[in-house]
Nucleic acid binder design. Structure first.
Length: 515
RNA sequence: CGGGGCGUGGCGCAGUUCGGUAGCGCGCCUGCUUUGGGAGCAGGAGGUCCCCGGUUCGAAUCCGGGCGCCCCGACCA
């Protein structure tokens, strides 16, 4: 999906806007609106997605295959997301640090499963300063292999534990196929790495962070995930246990939006990370790692956006309220701008507000631009409003279709923050309902399973025998995979005694087609 | 790596069959008039037609070779 310039790189993306003309011009029948419309979500979800990303000016393409440019509006969303999460990490005792981009190849090889999992998708630097390097340097696909040798030196005694470190960084994974935000060769993320004295503490950390991810996705992103444990063969390379947040997108596919890993003592053994206990013994530490990436931005897009473009939950909207002044004469212009700036001052510090006073665009053009960028509320102020001492507030998203509301000027400063909160709540409720409406519990009939996956899609809860071969067969036949063994909050009251293969079920799992 | 497709102003495309002044829409720039849902008129800028070689009076177009990208599949946060 990503292309390079000079070649048809931005091609498929721009095909998201409909161009009906031909060279001879005989097909110029479509109106401007039709011509500029996105491909509808219902028609081609992935084309729609690319169109939303482009219209919202979230990301662009780069000369390097599979890499994207995060544009200012997209990056602003990432920054909001980042600062909210960072605050949660700090509240729970984590500290940020930064480790090198380059990992000596030999380091990566120290943990057998880890190297096996990541080696196929690494980028390797073989030359530096015009000379061949003695040892190739791997561009980090994740940082365990460089962090543990270093943290090993930081840890001497039980008094140094727990060690709770996080880093915000870029990583590179050489993927075959890429899509903006969802899968790119290089992406931004945070990776937490912690060391603990006991297995229980490490497990508690893994679950703590999973809970933080979940509540952030619900409370900030309005993207409610199902959480649970990954199947044995689906774990992070080198982990004892992997937990994941699986969110349902508007096409009913699953997006793995965050993972936390209990690494047991695997990395401690591989990198010789030991501490001295109170009793004087030397023990390996128990460690965890966990991360979320810019993929979350893609999840945000696929959770809420519509055929007009991006829809952002207010908490993650770089601009929460955009004010569009309307005027004809200079006199009106002065009056309107005065009223608008009054409103701006009243909301300053409480709401991220922007006044769009450009006079090179018509109001209508501004509406489309800001709707495409997902601004939650637009406030229109024109001569008619001045006369009535009111402003018009227009919500980007509503459940009941009532988008436009007149607010008396005196109440606007109080009502607008409330409206933002209401919208945040309604987005979450809508997403939760959509997830539940597209979840199918207690499925035992494989034919029904296949019909759901081939048709509407969704999360299918079944019994499961635990065999990898069983998942492989289902995957080959339906393209659905086991997302997680659900956590308690998401489990059915009871689950079928038989697996989709007909064998005896040992536990419940959630299936879906996934990104 | 297998199967399909594409490479022409910033973007999307026509033109290639059958060689003859490189075009259309969008976007961009300037001016005037506009401004409550993508403004109108007038003027304007912008192209080594992916690269190399060949055929020809003449190549975007024909021939040979190369490169790149996209889609479907295998791999994946």
């Amino acid at each position: 999906m990503l292309r390079s310039p000079g070649s048809p790189m931005t091609g498929p993306v721009n095909r998201q806007t409909r161009v009906s003309t031909t060279g001879s011009g005989e097909l110029q029948e479509e109106s401007m609106a039709e011509e500029k419309a996105l491909i509808p979500r219902s028609e081609d979800f992935s084309a729609w997605y690319n169109g939303v990303v482009q219209r919202g000016e979230l990301a662009g393409y780069s000369p390097v295959r599979g890499c994207m440019v995060i544009r200012p509006h997209g990056y602003a969303i990432w920054e909001l997301l980042q600062s909210a999460l960072d605050a949660r990490f700090k509240e729970t005792g984590h500290q940020n640090a930064y480790f090198p981009l380059f990992i000596p190849e030999s380091f990566l090889k120290k943990e057998a499963e880890h190297v096996e999992g990541f080696a196929p998708e690494t980028a390797v630097v073989t030359h530096g300063g015009g000379k061949k390097l003695e040892e190739p340097l791997v561009v980090r696909p994740t940082s365990e292999a460089i962090i543990w040798p270093i943290m090993a030196d930081w840890i001497q005694s039980y008094r140094d534990l727990p060690l709770l470190i996080n880093q915000w960084a870029n990583v590179v994974r050489w993927e075959m196929r890429t899509r903006p935000f969802l899968r790119t060769l290089e992406f931004l993320w945070q990776e937490g790495h912690t060391a603990h004295a006991t297995e229980e503490e490490a497990e508690a950390e893994t679950l703590l962070i999973l809970g933080i991810y979940r509540s952030f996705m619900e409370g900030w992103m309005a993207m409610p995930p199902v959480t649970g444990v990954k199947a044995e063969w689906d774990k992070f390379a080198g982990a004892v246990r992997t937990y994941a947040c699986e969110a349902m997108m508007q096409d009913n596919w699953a997006l793995q939006a965050g993972t936390t890993h209990n690494l047991g003592q695997n990395f401690a053994r591989a990198f010789d990370v030991k501490y001295q206990t109170e009793a004087g013994a030397h023990e390996y530490v128990w460690s965890t790692s966990w991360g979320v990436s810019t993929r979350l931005v893609g999840g945000l897009v696929m959770s809420h956006s519509d055929d007009v473009g991006l829809v952002l939950p207010p908490k993650l909207a770089p601009i929460q309220v955009v004010v569009v002044p309307i005027w004809s004469s200079d006199e009106q212009r002065a009056q309107v701008l005065e009223a608008v700036h009054r409103l701006e001052q009243r909301l300053a510090g409480r709401v991220r507000i922007k006044v769009d006073d450009r006079d090179t665009l018509n109001p209508g053009a501004k509406y489309y631009e800001w709707e495409g960028k997902g601004v939650p509320i637009r406030v229109e102020v024109g001569p008619k409003d001045i006369a009535k001492q009111q402003v018009m507030a227009v919500r980007r998203f509503t459940r009941d279709g009532r988008r436009k509301i007149a607010l008396p000027e005196g109440e606007a400063a109080a009502r607008l923050p409330e409206m933002l909160e209401e919208m945040q709540g309604e987005l979450l409720e809508t997403a939760v309902r959509r997830r539940e409406e597209n979840s199918y519990r207690g499925i035992t009939d494989y034919e029904e399973f296949k019909r759901i996956i081939a048709g509407p899609g969704g999360f299918i809860y079944t019994g499961y025998c635990g065999a990898e071969s069983c998942e492989t067969r289902v995957k080959d036949e339906t393209k659905a995979t086991i997302r997680v063994i659900p956590d308690e909050d998401f489990r059915s009251d009871s689950f079928p005694a038989t697996c989709v293969c007909g064998g005896k079920a040992s536990h419940e799992v959630v299936w879906a087609r996934a990104y």
